[in-house]
Nucleic acid binder design. Structure first.
Lengths: 206, 206
DNA sequence: ATTTACAAACCAAGCGCTTGCTTGGTATTG
DNA sequence: CAATACCAAGCAAGCGCTTGGTTTGTAAAT
């Protein structure tokens, strides 16, 4: 299943908003602004202007500003969980599965959904405690996909370190790429970057 | 030279503020608050209350709120650069040097200066462009220490991936520990965590 | 030893502005 | 002819920062 097919099926199930619809467009712009300026520095007037409406009109679609942030995060996790599952299904060996997960996460972070992913990482504290708990639940499903593969690799002897530590190190390392990786410059492609990560862990398929 | 000696010498040179002085105490509290609630959510009234003065009195010590954030960052980088240099001098082989750097950075992130380090990572965007440039200059010195060691390791054949990519991955991975590593729980010590990082890179000294 | 001088540190009050959000009413759409 | 989407206006609260004046610490002058 292609990335786009996955997105379409999630839209059909009403799990993520159509980026062409009013709600989806707002969420896309919100992710862009939240990433660019941070959640707190982005005003409801900024958000409204970005989609060409008055600030008060926002509150027809969302009850509070925070609800917008939460929606960005929730939809992003849903999409990514689906993308990761697809990546796993496409791979045979555990090594290939790990590569698929890394590649998919790098794509999420540095591709079209990158802004939303960066928001997920950097604006976490701006969520209220109750929203955090809600989002965390979704995240656990997502994290389990990684742990299963890493544990299998450890069982095979391909990995020395503890799976849960490795996953957390990878979370940090991959998220951080958003601050420095620029595909257009320097010629390092996403595949090349994935290779580098595997090489760093001495897990190249060669 | 012990950590404390390094700190004392920096204080003597007026490169970082004495944590017992008025300015130093404010910066410590500022780091704590900025990390806990984020820079934007922390008001000058919060900062003033944390050190027991009126909000207006803050502006005797700093011209703007942003200047406080910048001071936290600048002093943190200065201290860390000194700590890294000491870690390098204490090690013989390149492998041991890398381990020393990782160990020192983990200690910075998860030890007493951890709050300030987290601020450095997560509040970067809240700095004005000109302040960012200033801080970046200091950071370059710090980063060169890492690159030199990683390049030597690559020369030895102990490392496959590109040094500058590895450093960036490590930056992310190590910074991220601040969000999950809790020394008191689970029994993973800082040394144990350092071992895990080395193991993940297949660089254990064993 | 007391006085004088002065700067640094601080307080009390509040100004001007921006913020998230509300309200009451008007287009637009199926 | 509802329901949905929107606008115009503005409120209450909170923000960073300023102001004018008082206390405190220090050290030379008497």
């Amino acid at each position: 299943m292609s990335q786009n097919q996955i997105l379409q099926s999630l839209i059909a199930d009403n799990l993520v908003s159509d980026p062409n619809g009013a709600r989806g467009r707002l969420l896309t712009e919100a992710a862009r602004l939240f990433r660019e300026k941070g959640y707190e520095r982005t005003t409801v007037r900024d958000l409204a202007a970005a989609v060409g409406i008055q600030s008060g009109s926002l509150f027809h679609h969302f009850r509070t500003k925070e609800e917008i942030l939460k929606a960005v995060m929730v939809e992003t996790i849903r999409l990514n969980t689906a993308l990761m599952q697809a990546a796993l299904e496409a791979a045979e060996s555990n090594r290939a599965k790990l590569r698929g997960l890394i590649r998919a996460e790098l794509e999420s972070i540095n591709g079209q959904t990158g802004e939303a992913m960066a928001v997920l990482v950097f604006e976490w504290r701006s969520l209220s405690a109750s929203s955090q708990a809600e989002v965390l639940e979704l995240r656990d499903i997502y994290e389990k996909l990684w742990l299963d593969v890493l544990e299998s690799l450890k069982g095979e002897g391909a990995l020395e370190a503890e799976p849960f530590v490795v996953r957390r190190m990878l979370t940090g390392a991959l998220s951080w790429t958003v601050t420095w990786y620029k595909p257009e410059r320097g010629g390092l492609t996403l595949d090349g970057l994935t290779d580098q990560v595997m090489a760093m862990m001495a897990l190249e398929s060669s």
